[in-house]
Amino acid sequence: MRFRSLLVLLLLSLWLTPLAYGQHKVAVCSTTQIADFTRQIVGDDWEVLCVLGPGQDPHSYEPRIEDSEMVARADLCLQNGWHLEGGEWMQDLADNNSKPLVTCVTGVVPLQAADKEGLVNDPHAWFAPANAAIYVRNILAGVSKTDPENAHMFQQRAALYLGQLNALDLWIKNQVVQIPAGRRVLVTHHDAFGYFCTTYGFEAASPAGWTTEEIGGIGLDRRQEIVEKIRDIGVPSIFVETSLDQRMISEIARDAGVEIGGNLYSDAMGAEGTAGETYIGMMRENVLTIVAGLK
């Protein structure tokens, strides 16, 4: 008798699970940072999917058929904006599937970055926690509109997370002040760290500009120019971004007579199980690396 009851319960739960699962709304995010922010707000109430995986470069990404299938399931799509998603691939995916799209940089005061076509808005705004807070507020508005029944819960979670971002901001200030101000020059391959540098009193220098397109095909003249520029800047260490070709940076560092200060998370966060699998973890890891390299 007991066995039969257990069997009935088991079958019932098996039948109910997909139904409950099917009720979850689905958010599809372009980048890992936005997926993390969204997860912090919606918790387990939504299914949060991400087009890019850890370490993938959003500037040069080309969407696949599976991405379109993923977006077709979405109740809400979320992107960074300001051309981070090179060729506007997230906008296209959302438009092609007629899905609402939240652009997270809305409301951020942009920094200007030099591009081939002139000055453009630097899209790497999440590197300042105060801008990350703007992302969180934009995502909160988007998910609350899509799922108004759970909006009060999202608001509570967002308020808690914003408190964590405030603590992160203070922690970063306590760390970076340990680097003598004259040494606070952050040299990376592409200038993803402009907002970070502006917020925390660093001078940003990136010899190759803000796109990652020329990473594979850098000529000898350009390389020599980069080496000389690094020597002119006069820092003891330069940094490698995890999503880019590390071999080339190592060679340039050797030619310039500087050390590699460490690897920094830039356009994408780390894999599951690493310190960089969340935004806060990624920022902490980056700051520890920078402080150790420049102190």
Binding site: G107, A130, A133, R137, A158, L162, A181, G182
Partner: peptide, 29 residues
């Protein structure tokens, strides 16, 4: 203190006040 730039960090924790928080890390923009 060195020649050139020098940074000081000043950090404070206000005694909690009634009313909603405002500013960069609040829910209201």
């Amino acid at each position: 203190v060195k020649q050139g730039f020098n940074d000081f960090l000043v950090q404070a924790t206000p005694l909690e006040t009634a009313g909603a928080a405002t500013g960069a890390f609040s829910l209201e923009a």
